[in-house]
Simulated scan of single mutants.
Amino acid sequence: MIDTHLHLIDQSVLTYPWLSGSEALNRNFLYEKYATQAHRVGITHALHMEVDVAPAEIETETDYVASLARQSGNLIAGAISACRPEEPGFAAFLQRQQINPFVKGFRRVLHVMPDNLSEDPLFRENIKRLGGTGLTFDLCVLPRQIDKAIALVDLAQDVQFILDHCGVPDIKANGLEEWRGKITDIARRPNVTAKISGVVAYADAETWRLETLEPYVHHVVESFGWDRLVWGSDWPVCTLGGGLSTWVAATHALLSGCSDDEKARLFSGNARRIWKLR
């Protein structure tokens, strides 16, 4: 299994302004704790996903994660870096990242930002710069923002986009219908791959069952097909809905009846191809 969505939080090294508003996550979540759990459930590689550090520390975060990855036996195979495409310095930032093989792609968190951020002309121009670089761009958007994500995808058709967390459905509020049609629409774009990750955090932590997640995960699988799916833990956010082992077990149960080849593509094959992992 390749975990394409690992977050590490180390407040002794980096600053995370958003953590002050998230009591459950406002503590350190270090590699050693993750690795203990990951080895137990069969995870063999992980991509670190940026954790929205203070903007001045974006490249420091990448350097910190790379220092961990150099340790013998470490699971981390690369990083998805934070970025600020809305800023004039993005072009120079991109040039620096392109010469760093540890950086596999980028994410600008959008689900907590104004809905029109991705419509900014400079933002769009800079996302287009990713075309031909082999670097991906993760879309973390709410269902109401998927239309704007589609517009961005259509403007940059030679960029590989990754839709995080099944499009962030509001499972707790039974938001299936609002979300379903938008997933069908964005899945028509061949340059979008969906990430089966994070959904346990959007369900009621006390009451969700496998049947709660099933219509969401199955719709994403049916919409995108097995060649455009990857898997992620969203650790430690997944601890809000049961933790890493619970999410891994739920994923396996949700895929019961699928072929070994289909599961292999989701769990590792597609990630190896997209991010050129060994």
Rank of each mutant, 00 (worst) to 15 (best):
I2L: 06
L8D: 02
L19N: 13
S22Y: 13
Y31K: 05
Q37F: 09
E50L: 03
D52Q: 08
V53F: 05
A54F: 09
A56W: 12
I58L: 11
E59I: 06
Y64P: 05
Y64E: 04
A66W: 03
R70C: 03
C83W: 11
P85G: 10
E86Y: 01
A91R: 04
Q97L: 09
F102H: 14
R107L: 04
R107S: 10
L110W: 00
L117K: 13
L122F: 05
K128C: 02
L130M: 04
G132D: 04
T133K: 04
L135I: 10
L135G: 02
L139V: 12
L142G: 08
P143Y: 00
R144F: 06
D147F: 08
K172G: 14
R188P: 13
R189D: 12
R189T: 07
K195A: 09
I196R: 01
D204Q: 07
L210R: 11
T212H: 07
P215R: 05
P215D: 11
Y216A: 02
F224K: 06
D227K: 14
W235L: 09
W235F: 12
P236H: 03
G241S: 04
G242M: 07
T251Q: 11
A253G: 07
D261E: 11
E262R: 15
R265D: 00
G269E: 01
